[in-house]
């Protein structure tokens, strides 16, 4: 079993708490930064899981017992790659949201609100139709017929 020193434990605690705090914000940008910070925390934890820092890399320049454990390093590399990909994806999503709605906030579940506010289960549709539309940005209806998201931009480029 690997133990951890206090300094690293404090760094991890800070990274995780900052990450989760940012994750609870409304703005997608802050959430994105939160996820990046959390990812760093998780990767640091993976590194520490391999043993104490400042050991030799597996390059054949040190004795086998002085090697750092290479497996957590490989795992952290893979995790970094995955976090990289998903961060760019979230950025694209945030941009798309900004184009469509003019903001990058993570919003509440509209239908859930509607169900909760409904007094009778058989509520008439005339009342219901008002609900979601109030939240709609006037410009979004015009924007929503443009269906090419960033990934689709590549699609339109490929069709040339």
């Amino acid at each position: 079993m690997i133990t951890i020193n206090v300094a690293m434990a404090v760094v991890l605690a800070v990274l995780y708490s900052v990450g989760f705090y940012l994750l609870l914000q409304r703005s997608l940008m802050r959430i994105l930064i939160g996820i990046v910070v959390l990812g760093h925390g998780a990767n640091l934890l993976l590194q520490l899981a391999g043993g104490p820092p400042a050991r030799a890399p597996v390059l054949g320049t040190a004795l086998p017992e002085e090697f750092a454990d290479p497996l957590p390093q490989a795992l952290a590399l893979t995790a970094i790659v995955i976090t990289f990909a998903l961060t760019t994806y979230l950025l694209a999503l945030g941009y798309r949201s900004w184009v469509l709605t003019g903001r990058d906030e993570v919003q509440d579940d509209v239908e859930d609100r509607r169900v909760a506010e409904r007094e009778r289960p058989e509520g008439s549709m005339e009342e219901d139709a008002e609900g979601p539309d109030d939240e709609e940005d006037p410009g979004s209806a015009a924007a929503s017929d443009r269906t090419d998201e960033p990934a689709e931009v590549s699609g339109s480029g490929a069709a040339r």
Binding site: L91, A92, Y95, V99, P150, V153, S154, G157
Partner: peptide, 17 residues
């Protein structure tokens, strides 16, 4: 390919928008 596609969609795509 991925980086070029990102440049195309998130870089010049946004500029075009």
């Amino acid at each position: 390919g991925v980086v070029l596609d990102l440049l195309r969609s998130l870089g010049s795509g946004i500029e075009r928008d």
